[in-house]
């Protein structure tokens, strides 16, 4: 049997990236400020984690405008959704393995 720890996704090691994914999988899209408030992080910190997720192809970014203000929204991609589900399954296995 494979060790479940190996199935955990390294990208979701960070509490912030995991938080971003958790919020995005249950919403069509969320904008930057809403994410910031949900996860309670600073702008720079959130931006860098979003960048990592975007580069691994787990989320897609859409830049838009509300009036004159920029409104950047984020949504999960298919591969991001899949990766997140696998990560959850791995977590589940780890909990089961003690019983």
């Amino acid at each position: 049997m494979k060790n479940p720890i190996e199935q955990l996704n390294k990208i979701f090691d960070s509490r912030i990236r995991l938080g971003i994914m958790s919020a995005l999988v249950v919403n069509d899209s969320i904008n930057f400020n809403e994410l910031k408030e949900l996860i309670a992080v600073t702008d720079g910190n959130l931006a860098s984690h979003l960048k990592t997720l975007e580069e691994s192809g787990y989320i897609k970014v859409q830049k838009g405008f509300i009036g004159r203000k920029t409104n950047t929204t984020y949504a999960v991609t298919k591969s991001g959704d899949k990766a997140f589900r696998q990560h959850l399954e791995a977590l589940e296995k780890m909990i089961r393995s003690i019983g």
Binding site: L18, G19, S22, A23, N27, L38, L91, E92
Partner: peptide, 14 residues
Amino acid sequence: KEIRDIKQIMERSS
């Protein structure tokens, strides 16, 4: 703990 965090954020965001 991780699963609890995930659940909490899912709930708060939806």
